[in-house]
Design a protein around this nucleic acid. Structure first.
Length: 361
DNA sequence: TTAGTATT
DNA sequence: CATAATACTAAA
């Protein structure tokens, strides 16, 4: 019976997706496995029991191919397809992908162009200059790989931590941000705000008129150990203890849309944005826009964002990408059908180089 | 400008 | 045919 639980099915489907990706497979196929994994995560029932009774065909994200593989896995405890994949693709390529800045495309290239199939082989090649000349391998990138390999021995590999363990750091950083010149409202977002029992990183949001300046201040905080990247709207760092902290700076008029985006979950955002498209709108971290014309309809508060999509405000703890979006539908009359209630006032709500309306011309 | 990686 | 949208960096 259920020797193989849903959690292992999720891990297996994700592993298949990772291996297919470094093999250079069709992106849609890779996504299909990721989507299936996501669906299993949010599934109410045990797959092994479904396999014994109704079968797996009806599950969202399961076509015939994935249904057959999952059935094999939950009934026999093994999966021939995965075993063949692991025999074909060097599994160490997945470790190479854990180096910051190195993803599946690069791992694939290293494997095919230079026969690199392990971290040791990569290190050797990097040290003896064998990487230079490979596609998209400049001096800068080689340097970044060498630094990432160096840190690897420190073994500070990122892990999810209990939220209680992270809370003091979150409080301290919120306080520090509030103390920076030009800082307006400051809030935590991400999985921490959603109340998840464990968090992988901290996501902080700050309202400001001078984002670049504020992010420079953030990067210079004493609690910051290393700056991973810093742009005009976003800065990622490693804080003391190795925890990654992402800080996003936005104008006050966009705070609601940005907070919504940054709170996630990813699956929730995708559902919201999909709903927006079907309503003739588009949603991003800067606001809600009408698709034709790109007029900005709102986004100063989360409430406004959800209302423009015809939804009641959804508590962060529910934003996991299950059925919460459908459950939050408001009666037709005041929803997306009549979205022009909010107008965007005030000058330049957007940050300087105008990220505004993402809808292509 | 484009590709790749990253983020929710 | 195919889930959304955007930011940052380095290469070309």
């Amino acid at each position: 019976m259920g020797m193989v639980g849903n959690a292992e099915v999720v891990r297996t489907l994700e592993r298949i997706a990772d291996l297919l990706e470094v093999r250079g497979e069709n992106a849609f196929k890779v996504r299909a496995y990721r989507l299936a994994a996501l669906q299993v995560e949010n599934l109410g029932a045990e797959l092994s029991e479904l396999a014994a009774s109704d079968g797996l065909q009806g599950i969202t994200g399961f076509g015939p191919a994935i249904a057959a593989k999952v059935e094999e896995l939950v009934t026999t405890g093994r999966l021939g397809y995965l075993e063949r994949l692991e025999a074909e693709v060097p599994v160490s390529l997945l470790e190479i992908c854990t180096l910051g800045g190195v993803g599946p495309r690069t791992a694939h290239m290293l494997w095919k162009h230079a026969g690199i199939d392990s971290l040791d082989a990569l290190e050797a090649a990097a040290r003896c200059g064998a990487l230079a000349g490979l596609p998209r391998m400049g001096a800068r990138t080689v340097e970044n790989i060498l630094r990432a390999l160096d840190r690897r021995s420190g073994e500070t590999r990122p892990r999810r931590r209990p939220r209680e363990e992270v809370a003091p750091l979150a409080d301290a950083l919120l306080e520090a941000l509030r103390g920076l010149a030009g800082a307006g409202r400051v809030e935590v977002a991400g999985s921490f705000r959603r109340g998840r029992p464990t968090v992988g990183d901290l996501d902080l949001l700050v309202a400001t008129d001078r984002p670049a300046e504020l992010l420079a201040g953030f990067a210079a905080l004493p609690a910051v150990e290393r700056v991973l990247l810093r742009g005009d709207t976003k800065c990622s760092v490693h804080a003391d203890g190795g925890m990654q902290v992402d800080c996003r700076a936005v104008a006050a008029a966009q705070f609601g849309a940005a907070w919504q985006y940054f709170t996630g979950s990813q699956a929730h955002n995708i559902r919201l944005r999909g709903l927006a498209l079907r309503a003739g709108l588009t949603l991003n971290e800067y606001g809600v826009f009408s698709i034709d014309g790109g007029e900005r309809l709102g986004g100063a508060t989360e409430d406004e964002v959800y209302a423009l999509l015809g939804l009641r405000w959804i508590p962060p703890a529910e934003r996991e990408g299950g059925d919460e979006v459908d459950a939050a539908r408001l009666p037709e009359s005041q929803g997306a059908a009549a979205p022009a209630r909010f107008t965007f006032e005030g000058p330049a709500a957007r940050v300087d180089p105008a990220p505004l309306h993402p809808v292509g011309h």
